[in-house]
Design a protein around this nucleic acid. Sequence first.
DNA 1: CATGAATGAGGCTTCATTCAT
DNA 2: AATGAATGAAGCCTCATTCAT
Lengths: 220, 220, 220, 220
Amino acid sequence: MAETLDDKLKAIQQEGNHMTKKQSQIVEAAIELIAEKGYYNTSTSEIARRAGVAEGTIFRHYETKKDLLVAIVTPAIANFSAPFFAEKFVKEVFDESYQSFEDLLYAFIRNRFEFAQSNVPILKILLQELAFHPEIQTTYKQVFGTTVYPAMDHAFTYYKEKGEIGDLPTDVLIRMIVPTIIGFMIDRFMLNPQKDWDDELELRRTVEYILQGIRKNECQ
Amino acid sequence: MAETLDDKLKAIQQEGNHMTKKQSQIVEAAIELIAEKGYYNTSTSEIARRAGVAEGTIFRHYETKKDLLVAIVTPAIANFSAPFFAEKFVKEVFDESYQSFEDLLYAFIRNRFEFAQSNVPILKILLQELAFHPEIQTTYKQVFGTTVYPAMDHAFTYYKEKGEIGDLPTDVLIRMIVPTIIGFMIDRFMLNPQKDWDDELELRRTVEYILQGIRKNECQ
Amino acid sequence: MAETLDDKLKAIQQEGNHMTKKQSQIVEAAIELIAEKGYYNTSTSEIARRAGVAEGTIFRHYETKKDLLVAIVTPAIANFSAPFFAEKFVKEVFDESYQSFEDLLYAFIRNRFEFAQSNVPILKILLQELAFHPEIQTTYKQVFGTTVYPAMDHAFTYYKEKGEIGDLPTDVLIRMIVPTIIGFMIDRFMLNPQKDWDDELELRRTVEYILQGIRKNECQ
Amino acid sequence: MAETLDDKLKAIQQEGNHMTKKQSQIVEAAIELIAEKGYYNTSTSEIARRAGVAEGTIFRHYETKKDLLVAIVTPAIANFSAPFFAEKFVKEVFDESYQSFEDLLYAFIRNRFEFAQSNVPILKILLQELAFHPEIQTTYKQVFGTTVYPAMDHAFTYYKEKGEIGDLPTDVLIRMIVPTIIGFMIDRFMLNPQKDWDDELELRRTVEYILQGIRKNECQ
DNA sequence: CATGAATGAGGCTTCATTCAT
DNA sequence: AATGAATGAAGCCTCATTCAT
């Protein structure tokens, strides 16, 4: 138990490496089934069947069914939240790589959009199960509190000073921006994935909506 | 099965009337427990215990556990979505009761905010369980499609013509507005209910954010 | 959890009363099977089958399989150890109902012999499972320490003063007497129950052996 | 399967010889764990872990888990019961090496005491598991019937004739003596090993108790 | 209407044993 | 000989649902 959550998160990002073939079959099957039907409607025997392994094999790799869920969802939290902030927000904002908040926001949304696009089922699971599993909530809070929030706070402060963002607290800005982005992705990937989307257009619209919504209110 | 969904919805809105004492105890207990722990983590025996009735009594009133869930959630859908639109949007917008889109939006958000405030647990259930129960999804789509969407579409058209809203499709407007409002409520009532909220201020900020986000872009 | 072990023991002695028919079928079947094959070789499904009930019914009455074991064994401990001491040792020894230690010992052995005779399977379980279940050990120690030991200690002191017993510590006397008695019963009821026993003779022999073994060593 | 039990017993007594290092690690680990927690509470994976070998390695040396148990317990039976009788009882009693039954009994108890002292865990296993494993019972009966009983019978007859032992059947004498000795050892090594024992004193007391218990009843 | 004992299908998990490497 | 991943039978337990009272 000396292992910290932080260690775990790091370990997780390289997970793919040391997984046996059967293990990744299990994870893949679990992701498909749980995304589709939810954690409590998916039995371990069903996962085993779809993965083409014996039920006992699941428990050789994951002590409990919940451990399997956590093993699926934790990297998603780490990867969805962290990378962009670690690399882009913190570094490039200082580098002034982004001329304006708009540039940053656009890069951010596009980057997360692309990540989501490649990870729809896992993110679906994350969204659906977050409410029911304290273990996941803890990880989420940890990641959000140490990585996402500070980076956002930092960036907001910077652009507020530059006058590009209205004078709203970070909490409020997050409460505006995040649901807008997630709302778009839910619509795009979960509610109406089959629709004939013009992703470029919608990304622009989303950026625009947020930008106008939070910008300094100069024209009123 | 001649009964249509529509009939059901109507019946539901007057439900309170014909419920026996035991029955409302059951519903109340179920709401508390399911909101707190989720549908699959709440057993009928637990509901019976908290309600102070025998387990069999639940099944005298609801054929299955899922029926009980549906009986809880369906009126929430009907009531959360419908009333305002039926009464205010449709009628008063025509009456020109609302001078501006801002007035309408503000009235709408405040109205829904107050409704949410009095129905936190049920709405929590709705939000959490919607993903897992096709029965609920069907009801939701039906209500949304026949009541909410048309009313919104109507209003948006009206105010777009008046130049108060930018020229965005109804779908897009909904995708912008709804997550913003729901996101606020989740923060307010579910994630941080204990915070020292200045509700008036936050309502204003929410309206402002939406308004700027979707208004005609005159000042750029 | 306010309930003390003592309360439990009392409750247990009247247990028979409030057991439903199915419940006593379960207990009876469990006793038979566990006595014969041991706790870990007896499955709950087997118990259910022999009891003529559904497997789930067991768990309506006993939360876990181990609870069932404890429910079987605890009264045996209470009843095997306690009654004689409470009633006879303590009271009658003072009354001088027993002229000599021999009388007391004989009455005691005969009394416990008869009890054992009517409870062979349960006592077999107690003997076999005591080593593996801390829950049972705890009960045993409690009963022994508060009831059996004090009564024996009392009686030994009394008869030592009368010169009928040699000057050995209570611990040692118990270590001599108890295995002799239990050893006899194991032979009689468990190892060779089918033998053609002359119980009166063997009881006498057992008393004699103990008596000579611990008496004041006058003739050497 | 031409191999008789007798062959096996002989083979067993030289077992140490042909055991590989891993094999004795396995046996040692198994003894520790099974003594502590019982056969059914000890998994082969746990034994393998403690032994520092792979789980499969156990099954290379012992076809089944039960075979491992038998391999542990059979030599204990052979060694606990047999040697003294074979060497001492039979030979030395005839040699009249022991002047009196007391001398023999004392030598016997001391000898078995010392053996027990060096083999507590294995004897614990024997005692605890004997009831549940017919394979062990068979071995036990075989050894007892062919080695212990005849030797004892022989010695008893001899000393009865010399008038040192009362006229009791061998069965009865065994039923008196054996539980007394085993009872002492259980107390000494299993129930209260940590106590500050004066072993010499207790050995003497045990001998004394048995001796008086079974001697010719001359002084009554 | 209400009760609650009884049901039995199905879920998660353990573990002795096998086998390809 | 040794390994350890994989197996799958079997175990304990949960829980929605039924039904006699």
